[in-house]
Simulated assay, not measured.
Amino acid sequence: MTRVIGLISGTSVDGIDAALVEIAETEANLEVDLLAGRTFAYPTQLKEQILRVCGGEKLSVEALAELDDNLAAEFARAALEIQSGFPTAELIGSHGQTVFHRPPLVGQDSSLKRLGYSVQLARGEVIAHLTGIPTISNFRAADLAVGGQGAPLVSKVDAYLLSDASKYRCVQNLGGIGNVTYLPARKEKNWEQKISGWDTGPGNLLIDLAVRQITDSKKTYDENGSWAARGTPCLELVNQWLEQEFFTQAPPKSTGRELFGEAYLSQCWRDAALYQLSPADWLATLTELTVASIVQSYRNFLPRMPDEVCLCGGGSHNLLIKKRLESQLAPVAILTTDEVGLKGDFKEAIAFAVLAYWRQCQQTGNLPQVTGAKMAMLLGEIHLPLG
């Protein structure tokens, strides 16, 4: 058994999700036991700075270095605290905090081809130094270097931990951005080669931004979707927004705040001006966009509809999203990953613990058919502590 800590802060910038796990692997099976999971909130000033940088605020190189180090210190603190009461972990896998993501550009004209670029702050060498634990970070770079999207990276982990012998499943993460992994039943011949996945579009991000604006930051999210549930979505707007290029683009594809951020929300608000929506209607409409983008992508890009959709991430607690998915995807069962044995609130942190373990074991971590990479790659850079 190997004790590994997984760390990640997602697009919503809610804080650092930390998971302490024990991993055991045989030739045919991967077992992961969650020993502890916790979300560590960012200090308010640091969170606001991250959000400003994600929103396009310009920084000097010196200021960027300071932010990188400050984030690394917070990630190291989370790693030290999550293992309190347990033997010291042997390895840390840290995704860091994404502040910029640019998918690769591919066109028929060779001059239009451009590798993707993705920036995750909280550098691993500082985490290793502060914790005294070998740390693997910068997971996306290797996939990007061979033409991949650098996302979603958790699909191979989903396959090992959440696939079923006879059921076809979609694992739908609902962070700031939504992403899906399609898992064929393992009874299918060459089932691993038939796995697919992509970013589906906004998850909680637009909803959270709207709540912050409506309440002057007194609230940061719509708990359980209860505010939006009191409103009526404007389906004309949702259908208009679904014509946006990202939603019609075939996978592999990835996205982030660069597309679905404050500028996008402002444009949506301008589009909504004619409809005189109440705050509840406005939130209901944005929530419906998340649901409709998921449903549309399933219908357009899946080889077949799944038997089950397993939700994870913060949006899995949004009862309105779950209810609308049940309505739109019936008779598909809408579950959470908790119900099939994997704690949904910490699934992404668990995934980066596994990816770090695989990197240490010299096992590839990406699925080229998901990310669009030319080949499977070892993911992550290894940083050893001093001394």
Rank of each mutant, 00 (worst) to 15 (best):
I133D: 02
E188N: 15
P152E: 03
R123D: 08
D199C: 11
G148H: 09
H129V: 00
I133V: 11
C170S: 15
L206Y: 02
Y182P: 06
K189S: 15
S163Q: 03
V211G: 02
R169V: 05
I207V: 11
D208R: 01
T200Q: 10
C170T: 15
E188V: 15
D208G: 02
I127D: 01
V119Q: 10
A185Y: 11
V154A: 04
T135S: 05
N179F: 11
N204W: 03
N190G: 13
V157R: 00
T131S: 04
E125T: 06
S155T: 12
S118P: 06
A185W: 12
A159P: 00
K156P: 01
R212Q: 13
L209K: 03
G150P: 00
G148S: 07
H129M: 08
Y182S: 03
V126N: 02
I195G: 13
R123G: 12
T181S: 14
D143E: 06
R212K: 13
L112G: 03
K113S: 09
N138I: 00
S137M: 04
K113A: 08
R123C: 07
L130Y: 08
N138Q: 09
T181P: 08
E192Q: 15
A210N: 02
L130I: 03
S110H: 14
R140D: 06
I127H: 02
A128P: 06
D199Q: 14
N204E: 03
R212F: 00
N204M: 04
S196E: 14
G124Y: 04
K156M: 10
V180R: 05
Q213S: 11
E188H: 15
S196M: 15
A165Q: 13
S111F: 10
G147Q: 06
L153Y: 01
A122Q: 11
D109K: 10
L115I: 10
V211N: 01
G132Q: 07
V171E: 12
R123Y: 04
Y168M: 00
D199G: 12
T200K: 07
V146M: 08
A141N: 07
W198L: 12
C170W: 12
L115A: 11
L162Y: 07
